[in-house]
Design a protein around this nucleic acid. Structure first.
Lengths: 187, 187
DNA sequence: GTCTATAAGCAGATAGAC
DNA sequence: GTCTATCTGCTTATAGAC
């Protein structure tokens, strides 16, 4: 288990960064929750907080893309599939009132001006989300060009509706955009 | 000019909080840019950073609502008006690559778990934005119930598309949602 | 109302023993 | 690879002179 300590750091950091944000999460907090000392963290991540955040972001991104994929893969009709995915997130926010591997908007907005590394990682992840929706639409016969445009629109709608839902402490904004999916996806 | 120093604090804080976020902006930075000493800040804002942020958020909210209102008030057709407003923001992001009184999503996501005061202020501001769009739609004959639903959808789409545009460093995500406004606003 | 000085604590990062 | 101790600088906040 050579990578066990390292993985524990990444998982703890991913949870804390995702919940509280990059700037509000101190290294000491990550250390305390990981149960490891500071020297160990800088051995595994010589470039410090930014490097740890990059790996944490990649882990969170994998969980988000996997969650979306698993929700839409068993429903052939892309409209029904995407609505099902949105309503699932709305239910989570109703229950938990916080994010756990749901959105990276907080990290994106915190870092787009201060860290080119993290900004680029967020940009890449948004592209991955767009591609998931685009692939689903293309499988239903939509042209690649239109599918990518609509995929990006869905990605934007979801990020904004998640932000509103978290602020309002309920999933209703997400349910309202779900109602609009049939108006946007013309297959 | 009794309130001059106080107003200067609020304006400086609003700019810095809006650009870098709540947690990344130190009081010392606000002090340096305001050109006033620390004691003066705590005289005007006895409750410290959170109180200053609340007033800064209200100022930013007023500027945002005023900007949207001024962009849509001279165009009768709500679809054209809203598209015009979105494309205006897209142009700003193309030029400046950052936010100045465009969105409060960063503050909302940073504070919804840590400050009930600031969370509520963000919730209220989102409600104001929704109302602006709803009013415009009702004037074009839409029912109040539907107008508020569509207003909230537009608000969510815009916040998400702004986040994507800032991350991608260009306004194209905003332009893609502008193309979808006619599919969502049925008048 | 304005300003200086400073407190008390936490931030990210490093050096070096083991 | 792991851990302790520590450095420097910044954070929010306060006390008290003017």
């Amino acid at each position: 288990m050579k990578e066990n300590t390292r993985d524990k750091f990444i998982e703890t950091a991913s949870n804390l960064f995702g919940k509280k944000g990059y700037n509000a999460t101190g290294l000491n907090e990550i250390l305390a929750e990981s149960g490891a000392p500071k020297g160990s963290l800088y051995y595994h991540f010589p470039k410090g907080k930014e490097q740890l955040a990059l790996e944490a972001l990649i882990l969170a991104g994998n969980k988000i893309t996997q969650s979306i994929t698993s929700h839409i893969e068993n429903i052939d009709n892309p409209i029904e599939a995407i609505i099902y995915n949105i309503e699932n997130i709305a239910d989570i926010i109703d229950k938990e009132h916080k994010t756990r591997d749901i959105t990276i908007s907080l990290i994106a907005l915190e870092t787009y001006l201060s860290s080119e590394t993290l900004r680029k990682a967020c940009e890449d992840l948004y592209q991955s989300l767009e591609n998931i929706y685009a692939d689903k639409l293309m499988k239903a016969g939509m042209s690649p060009e239109e599918a990518h445009e609509i995929g990006e629109v869905i990605c934007a709608m979801m990020e904004g509706a998640i932000t509103l839902s978290l602020t309002r402490q309920n999933g209703n904004p997400l349910r309202l955009i779900a109602k609009q999916i049939p108006n946007i996806v013309k297959i």
